[in-house]
C-alpha cells in the first residue's frame, strides 16, 4: 500500500480484512501460483486505492476552500454584525435594467442636445452615425419601458413591492428629517436623524425616477411614433413633447450624475461605491448608521416571533 499519512483506523481494518481473504484464497495453492495471485490482487487493490484517493483529495480540497471562506466571512461578520437582505433579487434586476437603459439613453440622447460638442460627435460616430445611434436609443427606450411595466406589476403583485411602495410615500416626518439633517450638517445637532427603511434622500430618488420615467416615456413615445400622433394631435403637441423630452433629459441626467452619484459613489461613507446593487445585502453596522428604525423594527419582530415560539 502506498504511504499515506491520512490513513485511519478504518483503512487499516479494511487492509487487514483484504489480507485475510487473500491468505484464505492462496492457502491451498503451490507457492509460485500463490505468489502470482497475491501479486495480481495487490496491483488491483493499489489501483483501486489510488483512484479513491484521487477523488477524495479533490473533494477535500474543495471542502477546505469552502471552510476557509466561511471562516473569513464569520470573522468579517463579527466586525460588521449580521447581514440583512435590503433589496431582493427582483428589485436588483429592475435596477440593473434601469441603469443600463438610462446609460444607453443618455449617451445616445445627450449628443443630440449638444450637437456642437466634439465629444457628441465622437459618441455619435462611435455608434456608426446618427442612423445607428437612434436605433440604440430606441433599444434603451424599450428597456426602460420594460422596466416601468415590470416595476408596476412588482408594486402590485409582490408583498415586498407593496410594502416598499407604501414605505416610499412621502410623510410629514420626512420634512422634519430634512430640517434635522440640515441642522446636523451645520453642527447644531450632534446626532443624525434616525431613518426608517427609506430616508428622504432615497424617497426623492424613487419619485424622481417615477416622474422622469412618465415624462420621458410619454414624450418619447410621441416622438417615436410622430406620424401616428399627428393623426390625432396638432404639430405643436409634438413640439411640446420634444421640449419636455429634451429638458427632462437634462434634469434627469444632472440629478443622476450629481445627486445620485454623490449619494452612492462620491459620498465619503460609500466611496467608491458599494456592491449593494449586486448582492443586495447590507451589514448590521450600516443598518445602525443609516436605517436604525428599520433595524429596531426587525429586532422587535424577531423578539415577538421567538416569544410566540416559546409561548407555544
Amino acid at each position: 500500500m502506498p504511504e499515506d499519512d491520512r490513513k485511519d483506523i478504518n483503512r487499516d481494518a479494511v487492509a487487514r480484512e483484504i489480507e485475510a481473504a487473500v491468505n484464505e484464497q492462496v492457502s491451498g495453492l503451490p507457492p509460485e501460483q500463490a505468489d502470482a495471485l497475491r501479486e495480481k490482487i495487490r496491483l488491483r487493490v493499489r489501483e483501486e486505492i489510488e483512484r479513491d484517493l484521487r477523488a477524495r483529495t479533490v473533494s477535500e480540497r474543495r471542502e477546505a476552500v469552502r471552510l476557509a471562506r466561511e471562516a473569513r466571512k464569520k470573522e468579517k461578520d463579527a466586525e460588521e454584525g449580521e447581514t440583512f437582505l435590503r433589496f431582493n433579487r427582483n428589485f436588483r434586476f429592475q435596477h440593473m435594467v434601469m441603469f443600463s437603459s438610462v446609460i444607453l439613453l443618455i449617451i445616445t440622447g445627450m449628443p443630440l442636445k449638444f450637437p456642437g460638442f466634439i465629444l457628441s460627435r465622437f459618441v455619435i460616430n462611435f455608434w456608426g452615425g446618427i442612423q445607428n445611434s437612434t436605433i440604440v436609443h430606441r433599444v434603451g427606450a424599450g428597456m426602460l419601458i420594460y422596466f416601468m411595466v415590470h416595476h408596476f406589476f412588482y408594486t402590485i403583485l409582490t408583498r415586498d413591492g407593496r410594502r416598499d411602495f407604501v414605505l416610499l410615500l412621502p410623510k410629514f416626518g420626512d420634512a422634519k428629517d430634512i430640517a434635522h439633517n440640515i441642522r446636523h450638517f451645520l453642527g447644531k445637532v450632534a446626532d443624525k436623524p434616525r431613518f426608517g427603511r427609506f430616508s428622504y434622500i432615497e424617497k426623492f430618488d424613487y419619485w424622481a425616477v417615477y416622474w422622469g420615467c412618465i415624462i420621458m416615456i410619454g414624450s418619447g413615445l410621441f416622438l417615436w411614433f410622430e406620424t401616428d400622433v399627428l393623426r390625432f394631435l396638432p404639430k405643436y403637441a409634438l413640439d411640446v413633447a420634444h421640449e419636455m423630452h429634451s429638458d427632462e433629459a437634462m434634469l434627469a441626467t444632472l440629478a443622476i450624475v450629481i445627486w445620485h452619484f454623490y449619494n452612492v459613489h462620491f459620498n465619503p461613507d460609500r466611496f467608491p461605491g458599494t456592491l449593494l446593487w449586486w448582492h443586495g445585502r447590507i451589514t448590521e453596522h450600516e443598518m445602525k448608521e443609516e436605517h436604525p428604525l428599520e433595524l429596531e423594527e426587525i429586532v422587535a419582530r424577531r423578539a415577538k416571533e421567538s416569544a410566540e415560539v416559546t409561548n407555544r
Binding site: 406620424t227 399627428l230 393623426r231 394631435l233 396638432p234 404639430k235 405643436y236 403637441a237 413640439d239 421640449e243
Partner: peptide, 18 residues
Amino acid sequence: CHPGANPNFAVGKIHVDA
C-alpha cells in the same frame, strides 16, 4: 419622408423657438 402626413403637420409653427 413621413408617409401618411396630414393637415395636422401644418397646425403650429414649424420653425418654432421655445
